[in-house]
Simulated scan of single mutants.
Amino acid sequence: MAKTNAVRLLERQGIGFELRAYEVDPDDLSAESVARKVGLPPEQVFKTLVARGETHGIWLAVVPGDCELDPKAMARVTGDKKVDTVPLREVEPLTGYVRGGVTALGCKKPYPVVLDETAELFEVISISAGARGLQILLSPADYIRAVGARVAAISRAKR
């Protein structure tokens, strides 16, 4: 498997992890699909969303695969009055990653990260390794340390 910037960052920090490759379906990049392919429940596979607050700018919101970002909850955490996810066309220019491969590890800029509190319910969580078809499994504590994440309730059930 090819080394991504995310993998290199974890190796530099001496953080243990497991890589899991999966076959990419360009028509279904959903976290639920990825979860099935890597053999984990969707609530244990976390997706990284790019959000923008009207006052404090870009944030990365990391939420369970079976949920969506709660913009009001995210705004409370960031101190913004309003937070929305950015349009898809802005994701790659902001992060350096394509949809389905976005991760806070090795991002183009060191954006602040908020990890949904449900991550701490698991011994291991799965996040994108920075490329479609590759996931990193690591402890929530190691992920928090690697990206300097805040932990808060920022997700809600999908509507």
Score class of each variant (00 low, 15 high):
Glu43Ser: 08
Val62Ala: 12
Thr55Met: 01
Val38Ser: 01
Gly39Gln: 11
Val38Glu: 03
Pro71Leu: 04
Lys47Thr: 02
Gly65Lys: 03
Val63Ser: 13
Glu43Gln: 00
Pro64Gly: 04
Lys72Cys: 00
Asp70His: 06
Lys47Arg: 11
Thr48Glu: 07
Ala51Ser: 15
Lys37Phe: 03
Pro42Thr: 09
Asp70Cys: 03
Gly39Phe: 07
Lys37Glu: 15
Val63Trp: 04
Glu54Met: 12
His56Glu: 10
Val45Leu: 07
Val50Asp: 05
Val63Asn: 13
Val62Phe: 06
Leu69Tyr: 02
Glu68Ala: 07
Ala61Gly: 06
Leu40Asp: 00
Leu49Asn: 06
Thr55Lys: 12
Pro42Ile: 05
Pro71Ala: 04
Val45Cys: 09
Cys67Pro: 03
Leu60Gly: 05
Pro64Tyr: 11
Asp70Glu: 11
Pro64Phe: 10
Leu69Ala: 08
Val38Phe: 00
Trp59Arg: 08
Val38Asp: 01
Cys67Leu: 04
Leu40Ala: 08
Pro71Arg: 05
Leu60Phe: 02
Glu43His: 04
Val63Pro: 11
Asp70Trp: 00
Leu40Asn: 06
Leu40Cys: 03
Leu60Trp: 07
Arg52Pro: 00
Cys67Tyr: 09
Pro42Gln: 03
Glu43Gly: 03
Gly57Ser: 06
Pro42Phe: 13
Pro42Cys: 01
Pro41Gly: 13
Cys67Gln: 14
Pro71His: 11
Arg52Ile: 12
Glu54Pro: 00
Phe46Asn: 05
Asp70Ala: 13
Pro42Asn: 10
Ala51Arg: 13
Pro41Cys: 11
Pro41Leu: 09
Ile58Cys: 02
Thr48Asn: 09
Val38Ile: 15
Val62Gln: 12
Ala61Met: 15
Lys37Gln: 15
Pro71Lys: 01
Leu49Trp: 03
Val45Glu: 04
Pro71Gln: 08
Leu60Pro: 08
Val63Asp: 13
Lys72Thr: 14
Arg52Cys: 08
Lys37Ile: 02
Val62Ile: 15
